[in-house]
Nucleic acid binder design. Structure first.
Length: 417
RNA sequence: GGAGGGAUAGCGAAGUGGCCAAACGCAGCAGACUGUAAAUCUGCCGGCUCUGCCUUCGUAGGUUCGAAUCCUACUCCCUCCA
């Protein structure tokens, strides 16, 4: 048994625990985390904290940041982050959720994606305390007997406990044998890296536990599992994901981050505050209380959230500007500052005039001519201050004319030749 | 190896000879309202030279005055039995 902790060491462990427990869905098992932290504090050896990344989608959105922020906290406490890019795993396709066969990535694409990941991740993570690994390094060299050996460490019954496997099994949907290897491979990553902790979304619980189950077979101490809540996207219902298009990318423009943040349902605000911003627990409490008691206007709370998020990725100045732009367009209903200028060729004009329908299409404000007609009929089109409701209208173009469709789409006409 | 089920608009899902550019739901867009691009309500939601025309219902042929609907072949997906 270990030596008794000094008072200072005990305090340090408690401090770390307090930080790490915030906003977490589950720690499995909680006691093990404490045990590992105690050892780390005593020996000065950092914990190895692993996160697996999908190799095919290197677009980081704020849904990912829930986990990344937690990793950053580990780093700030002196621990080491191991990022695993599942380049090998990606060839099989994670059966989690919708199973669609993924296209196999070439080595170059993987490298490119890894670089792209790095660029984005280091907006949040500390480069000095981060290792990046490709799991093909250890997985591609396993031979068949090693694989059989690995597969023998778990059972079919255990596999079928996994939520989506069990659902598919009972509803008579196909489960390919190779899909069972996905959790095994992810678990083996932990073995290869001797991870102390693995993070993931709550939907990853099963896969994360697999690493924990495998490690003792390879004479390693089991890793601790930390799952983070999944965050709903802009629609407020479905998990934020790129494929659903309901996400806020951390590399998006400041005005986009601000605007998209403003479009989340009110009910989601507190969760966003809690999981994707770094405001203090006290402030979080104030916001919650203010909203509950009606002393804080939901709009103001959301604007503060949007501001905060924008500032995290673009800095305070850009956040100010995005906020001013938002107010200008949506609250004062006036024009934004940066209206794209689109050239219209004089060849398209007849006597200096052009029909409204093709004009909107040429300006890129509508998807098709039919769409243009619809917009006009619905009263969505404005030229300058004038609303245009006549589908047959012919417009006398002038340089710098502002054309607006709906609330958000603007274009400025410039005369090309 | 055998038997069966399926492929419909961005997604899900009706439709089984004419009333089908195709119900309905979701997503999307617009308008009204507002507290914001929240919520709610209303409308739109294949293309076009738009009271009409053109191209779509896995792919290619065929039957018919007329096909998403019937026939033939093919492709892909799924299930069950062995």
């Amino acid at each position: 048994m270990e030596k008794k902790l000094s008072v200072a060491e005990r305090q340090e462990v408690d401090r770390q625990l307090a930080v790490l427990q915030r906003g977490v869905a589950e720690i499995l098992p909680a006691a093990d985390l404490e045990k590992k932290l105690i050892r780390s504090v005593k020996t000065g050896k950092p914990l190895k904290v692993k996160l697996g990344l999908d190799p095919s989608a290197p677009d980081i959105h704020i849904g990912h940041t829930v986990v990344l922020n937690k990793l950053r906290q580990f780093q700030d406490l002196g621990h080491l982050v191991q990022l695993v890019i599942g380049d090998f795993t990606g060839r099989i396709g994670d059966p989690t959720g919708k199973s669609e066969t993924r296209k196999q990535l070439t080595e170059d694409e993987v490298k490119e994606n890894a670089q792209s990941y790095a660029d984005q991740l280091f907006l949040i993570l500390d480069r000095e305390k981060t290792e990046i690994h490709l799991n093909s390094r250890w997985l591609s060299s396993l031979d068949f007997s090693a694989i059989v050996d690995l597969a023998a460490k778990t059972t079919v019954a255990r596999m079928l406990e996994r939520d989506d496997f069990s659902k598919r099994y009972h509803s008579g949907q196909a489960i390919s044998v190779h899909e069972f290897f996905y959790p095994l491979m992810q678990g083996y990553d932990s073995v290869a890296l001797e991870s102390d902790v693995e993070l993931g979304g709550t939907d990853q619980t099963f896969n994360l536990l697999m690493g924990r189950q495998l490690q003792p077979h390879y004479d390693q101490e089991e890793q601790v599992i930390m799952t983070m809540p999944l965050i709903e996207g802009l629609d407020g219902v479905k998990k934020m994901s790129k494929s659903l298009g309901n996400y806020i990318g951390i590399q998006e423009q400041a005005s986009e981050i601000y605007g998209k943040s403003m479009s989340i349902p009110d009910d989601l605000m507190v969760k966003y505050y809690e999981l994707v911003t770094d405001i203090s627990l006290e402030k979080l409490g104030e916001v919650k209380k203010g909203l509950a008691e009606g002393t804080l206007h939901p709009r103001d709370a959301k604007m503060a959230l949007a501001h905060q998020l924008t500032a995290m990725y673009h800095g305070e100045a850009a956040a100010e500007e995005a906020e001013a732009g938002f107010k200008r367009v949506f609250q004062e209903r006036s024009l934004p500052q940066d209206i794209p200028a689109v050239p219209i060729s004089s060849a398209d004009l007849e006597d200096g005039e052009i029909w409204i329908v093709p004009l909107l299409a040429k300006l890129g404000l509508v998807a098709s001519n039919g769409d243009a007609r619809r917009m006009v009929k619905q009263g969505a089109v404005k030229i300058g201050e004038e609303k245009v409701t006549d589908v047959d209208a012919r417009i006398a173009l002038t340089e710098g004319m502002i054309v607006q469709v709906g609330k958000r789409k603007f274009a400025k006409v410039t005369m090309g030749s």
